[in-house]
Design a protein around this nucleic acid. Structure first.
Lengths: 137, 137
DNA sequence: ATGCAAATGCGAACCATTCTCATTAAGACT
DNA sequence: AGTCTTAATGAGAATGGTTCGCATTTGCAT
């Protein structure tokens, strides 16, 4: 009777169980417009079900990363931050003063990356492009 | 009588002492063609002077980063890795199978980054471009 | 309804890094 | 060369993020 979200379907297809913690964490990710870290997800989850543990948040993030539902970003210094992965690819500009994350895309840069890797004899499996900047006022 | 290396001069100019541990670590960095992490530097240093501690390696790396002598890279997952900073700017392609680091530069990409940041109202303070790839055989 | 493997919660363990603090040693000034 | 001041060091404890181990719970196929 419950209609499954896209993510729940992915879990099912991967032969994984749709558990209460996963359901809640998934729901949080869907609602989050930001890039929360594990602790933040844990806190938000606790509001919906106090018995979820931080370890489960970490485990779930790993699982969701594997099913392709979320992307993990390890920005300078701090803890890993997560976001849904269903949207199209983009890179990040991190405001070094506020920590705010601005997303952007550049097909030209993507293109150049591929060319460069190829020249070096590599195929790109993943990449990270992060700009750390200060707002010009 | 002892001629100072470029780095030793930088330390002196910053009002810092040229200590035995620093001298040794600096020497190791000069000889290293790779991108060692703190533990690796510590091990190499131990061969020259067994009483150097890991804490000192970390402290020294921080100091050298501040004087601009080294660059710190936090590649996916693992510990921070270091390299001398006197050479011209370059980005990294990390071989996901071996961990090997290939360096490259792309003025076109640098250029595009600046343009993008500007369009978003930011000036770039720092940036990271890392390609993770697999060798094409 | 039942059984079993997968997932969870909890705390312990882990790893990279930083900190504390008593001790050592640069190097400035005799 | 000797002394003094204070930065730097060594050793280990502490910290922060993340993972693990294991007993218990819970999805879900039967």
């Amino acid at each position: 009777m419950t209609e499954l979200s896209r993510y729940e379907r992915d879990l099912k297809n991967a032969g994984l169980r749709i558990t209460q913690p996963r359901r809640i964490i998934l729901q949080i990710l869907e609602q989050s417009g930001d890039h929360p870290d594990a602790t933040e997800i844990f806190q938000r989850a606790a509001k919906m079900d106090a018995r979820i543990s931080l370890a489960t948040v970490y485990r779930t993030m790993k699982v969701l990363e594997e099913t392709g539902a979320v992307e993990r970003h390890a920005f300078q210094g701090g803890p890993a931050r997560f976001e849904q992965a269903d949207r199209e690819h983009h890179d990040h500009l991190i405001d070094i003063e506020t920590g705010a994350v601005v997303e952007f895309t550049s097909p030209r840069i993507e293109e150049l990356q591929r060319t460069i890797a190829e020249e070096l004899g590599y195929e790109i499996v993943d990449h990270r492009l992060e700009l750390y900047g200060r707002k010009i006022r």
